[in-house]
Design a protein around this nucleic acid. Structure first.
Lengths: 213, 213
DNA sequence: CTTATTTTTCAACAAGCGTTGAATGACGTT
DNA sequence: AACGTCATTCAACGCTTGTTGAAAAATAAG
């Protein structure tokens, strides 16, 4: 069994702490302490604090984009004649996230919570989200445009905005729904979250972007 | 024309800056400078930094809750026989927010962006959201339960979670949809946001919580 | 074994932080 | 005009922050 390098331990610790408290809510000393290394080591490997943040944010993005795009290509291949349905597209967009979140390794869970933090932030979001995720999102919107041929682009983007919001709150794992529902629903129950989100969002798309009777 | 007190100028400045950069992303010196007062004055009026944050967060909550509850009571009174429809309930939940966001005073816009920050944060959200907004939310969920009599509570809460996410991202005003849509949709166009969100969410509720055929 | 190179720690820096106590200003009451 | 109260500023405190250069340890190369 291979040891985890100190460099990776710093990334892991930073990932978890940044996701929970945000960029300014965490000090390099906390990260170093949580990783069990000296403060200066983060600087040696990554440079400034902001560069460490970027390194964390970019580490898993390519892998994530690939698994989601693969899921889309798969349903597109399966429905080569008619094209995939709205539900199938949404499913390809969401299920890969569920899979990583339910893995034994908590790293992916922290990473997706970090994405939620960035995506919901005016200050960080504009800079960071587009660069890494725009291409993928446009790919999915193109598929939706084909599945909903009567939709205007404006309607499509606003519907995606709703989808993105519902997803973001799920990724954040705020546990708010736990207290609100008296323990009936749990933020950690990702399968239940996506099982409800997929038909909910698909129905929304159909209603707003579907044929006008 | 009445002068704005320095105390209120501190609240206004803190509201805007906290909403944009989060609790730890803002210093008391930035707040004081933006308000045009001395650093020590924030401490005199509000105590510690965290107490200032709480003061900002609570300042407008009662007023906001009242306007949303009034909107709900109104549609309930109008439809005393059948009870309000899902669309009417969602509309009562959302439109008061749109109204405050479109006011000339930008304070409300900043305040709702702050709510988005808190609601999406594991660290702050658990403590702060429930205390101020749970009663109101349960009131709306009760109304939805009545409009969707076949729904299980679990389904209802998960659907509310989706609604809350879509709303939160709108409140945050990240401008992500602006770049994504190439300027076709604007985060600042609240009317368009809610015009699309209401039918979208209502359709989701009906699909997930409606009668099973 | 020696030498280079990379990784890690140590010690310290200047800057900025939240917070405080005392001094000053403003303002209405008597 | 003198007083007391509230509002505001000033100056400074102890502490933590991100960052750095040099020392030490580990690893690889010859």
């Amino acid at each position: 069994m291979r040891e985890i390098s100190k460099r990776d331990r710093i990334l892991d610790a930073a990932e978890e702490l940044f996701a929970e408290r945000g960029f300014d809510g965490v000090t390099l000393r906390q990260i170093a302490s949580s990783a069990g290394v000296d403060v200066a080591l983060a600087n040696y490997h990554f440079g400034k604090k902001l560069e460490l943040f970027n390194a964390v944010f970019e580490r898993r993005s390519a892998l994530l984009n690939k698994s989601r795009l693969d899921a889309l290509r798969k349903v597109q291949a399966e429905q080569a004649d008619t094209g995939p349905s709205v539900e199938q597209i949404i499913e390809a967009f969401l299920r890969p996230l569920e899979l990583t979140q339910e893995m034994a390794d908590p790293g992916w869970r922290h990473y997706l919570a970090l994405i939620a933090y960035v995506n919901n932030s005016t200050y960080w979001g504009k800079r960071m989200m587009s660069k890494l995720f725009d291409d993928l999102v446009q790919e999915f919107i193109a598929a939706l445009r084909q599945a909903l041929p009567t939709a205007s682009d404006q309607d499509l983007y606003w519907c995606y905005h709703n989808l993105s919001g519902a997803l973001t709150l799920t990724l954040a794992q705020t546990e708010r729904i736990d207290t609100l529902s008296g323990g009936l629903c749990k933020s950690s129950d990702f399968q239940a979250a996506y099982d409800h989100m997929i038909p909910f969002v698909a129905a929304g798309f159909r209603k707003v972007c579907g044929a006008k009777e």
